[in-house]
Design a protein around this nucleic acid. Structure first.
Length: 219
DNA sequence: TGCCAGGCCGGGT
DNA sequence: ACCCGGCATGGC
C-alpha cells in the first residue's frame, strides 16, 4: 500500500535530513520566503547576504530603508522592484499588528487568523504564507509548491487539475500534523524537484520514488 | 545559447 | 472562472 508516509521515508533515506529553513531568525525566514518566489536559492542567498553585510536584516532597519534602496540590495534575487514592494507590504502588516516589530507576538497569533492576514498582503500567496507559518511560526501547516505538484502528478498520484488546497489537504489529512515532519517533508520534496522533477524533464526515470508503482488515487 | 528557478498579480476573454 | 504576460537575475 502506497502512502505519503512511504514517500517521506524513501525521500529521507535518499537525501537525508535537510534541517530547513536555511535562515537563523524568523525575520530572515520571512524575508527569504518572499525573495525565493519563483527563484533559486543561490540567488536569494546573495540578496540575503547583501542585507546582512549592511546590517539591514531586521524589522527596524528594513522599515527605515527606502524601497528603491531595498530593491538595489536584493537585485540578485530577481524581480527586485516587485519584491522590494512586497517586502514593504509585509513590513506594513507587521507594523499594523505589532507596532514595535515584536515578531513573537505577531507569529504567536491563531494560525487561521495569521494566515488570512498574510494572504491579504499584496504579493503573498498561499505558498509564501504557508512557508512563513511553518518555517517562521512553527505552525503545523503543510507547504505545497510546484515540485509537490510535479511529484504527485508525474507519478500519477493525482490528476492534473488538482489545486493547491486539495494537495495541501491530502498531506494534512493523511499525516500526523507535526511541525518537524512537515518541515522535513517539504524540504525533501524540494530536493527531489531540483534533482529529478525539473520542468524540462517530464519523466523522472531514476527518481528515488521509482520503486513504487503508483496508481491514480492510491495514496 | 536558451531554459529554468522553493510565485503572484492583473488584465483580458 | 480560466488563461496569459509580466516581473529579472544568475547557473547550467
Amino acid at each position: 500500500m502506497l502512502t505519503l508516509g512511504n514517500i517521506y521515508s524513501a525521500l529521507l533515506a535518499h537525501f537525508g535530513p535537510q534541517n530547513w529553513w536555511p535562515g537563523d531568525s524568523p525575520f530572515e525566514v520571512m524575508v527569504g520566503a518572499v525573495l525565493t518566489q519563483n527563484t533559486n536559492w543561490s540567488n536569494v542567498n546573495r540578496a540575503i547576504t547583501n542585507l546582512k553585510n549592511d546590517d539591514l536584516l531586521s524589522f527596524e532597519a528594513l522599515s527605515a530603508l527606502p524601497e528603491g534602496m531595498l530593491a538595489e540590495k536584493i537585485r540578485p534575487s530577481g524581480y527586485y522592484n516587485l519584491k522590494a514592494r512586497r517586502l514593504k507590504n509585509l513590513l506594513a502588516l507587521i507594523s499594523a499588528e505589532a507596532p514595535s516589530g515584536d515578531l513573537d507576538s505577531f507569529l504567536g497569533q491563531d494560525t487561521g487568523q495569521l494566515r488570512s492576514k498574510l494572504l491579504s498582503v499584496k504579493g503573498i500567496g498561499p505558498e509564501t504564507a504557508d512557508s512563513i507559518l511553518l518555517y517562521a511560526g512553527q505552525k503545523p501547516v503543510f507547504v505545497v509548491d510546484t515540485y509537490t505538484y510535479r511529484m504527485l502528478t508525474r507519478h500519477g498520484f493525482i490528476g492534473e487539475e488538482t489545486d493547491y488546497y486539495e494537495m495541501q489537504d491530502l498531506f494534512m489529512d493523511t499525516l500526523e500534523r507535526d511541525v518537524a515532519l512537515f518541515n522535513e517533508f517539504h524540504a525533501l520534496i524540494v530536493c527531489l524537484g531540483k534533482d529529478y522533477c525539473r520542468k524540462s524533464k517530464p519523466r523522472c526515470q531514476e527518481c528515488p520514488l521509482g520503486k513504487f508503482e503508483p496508481v491514480l488515487g492510491d495514496l
